[in-house]
């Protein structure tokens, strides 16, 4: 069995306090990485850091800031710079889901969703890429969505924000390749997280029925793919979007 070892690798994960972000934090901790966990709830982040440090013996730092605000990202990265001059991996995972049929979408929904899901990817990547370039390269993994690839009823805003993440991934991969910074994305399908629990039981079952593998994915299924893209196992992979969806059709 191939074991991924990220000992001494510095990894920043946004939206790390729950769901896919927390699962990524656990996977990277198991691989021995030095973790910087971002979110807005510092109590949750500190608790997760304490748990991971105890279980895996890794260094873990809570880095609370709001990824949707450029100034907050700037301050967050200044703080990261004080802690370490180095960054090997950035996982742009922070995201929100706020569905509505297009006739009922408010400007606030559009602004909030794009700020958190899309703008944050640009803001964080621009600082992260500079840190990575200083030490000869790195890996940026963006968490997109199957909805950003194929769309869905009631998800024009969410789907648009995630399609943009895919566009950012493709462009950044080209721009940063020369400096050995790889940029890829995962596109999760229907994953068992707090976000998907917002669905009605009927909608939930309808979604499960559309998955070829016949089951909902887990956050750790996504985290494993993120870990692969962050590791040297994917050292010649850039500009790719990997579906983690069990063969879901929408």
């Amino acid at each position: 069995m191939i074991e991924i070892n990220l000992t001494d690798k510095h990894v920043l994960i946004t939206g790390a306090s729950r769901g896919i972000g927390a699962a990524c934090a656990k996977s990277f901790a198991a691989a021995g990485a030095i973790l910087y966990l971002n979110g807005r709830d510092s109590d949750k982040l500190n608790a997760l850091c304490a748990e991971l440090s105890e279980e895996y013996g890794v260094n873990c730092h809570a880095l609370p800031f709001d990824v949707s605000k450029a100034d907050d990202v700037k301050q967050g990265f200044q703080q990261l710079f004080k802690l370490t001059k180095k960054l090997d991996v950035l996982v742009n995972n922070a995201g929100i889901l706020d569905d509505a049929l297009v006739g009922m979408v408010t400007p606030q929904q559009v602004e909030n969703t794009f700020a958190t899901n899309t703008h944050s990817v640009i803001y964080c990547s621009q600082y992260a890429a500079r840190l990575m370039q200083r030490s000869g390269g790195g890996s940026i993994v963006n968490v997109a969505s199957i909805i950003g690839r194929v769309g869905n009823v009631g998800q024009a805003v969410y789907g648009g924000s995630k399609a943009a993440v895919i566009g950012i991934t493709l462009s950044l991969s080209k721009e940063l390749a020369a400096t050995n910074v790889r940029v890829n994305a995962v596109a999760p399908g229907f994953i068992d997280t707090d976000m998907t629990k917002q669905l009605t039981p009927e909608k939930y079952q309808e979604r499960v029925n559309s998955i070829a593998m016949g089951r909902v994915g887990t956050a750790s299924n996504v985290a494993d793919t993120v870990l692969f893209l962050a590791s040297d196992l994917s050292v010649y992979v850039t500009g790719q979007v990997i579906g983690v969806d069990g063969g879901m059709l929408i």
Binding site: K74, F81, R130, R134
Partner: peptide, 15 residues
């Protein structure tokens, strides 16, 4: 140049 300045002066410049 920005990367060099950050290295030489050990700072992280704002965008």
């Amino acid at each position: 140049l920005i990367a060099e300045l950050e290295d030489v002066f050990d700072v992280m410049l704002d965008t």
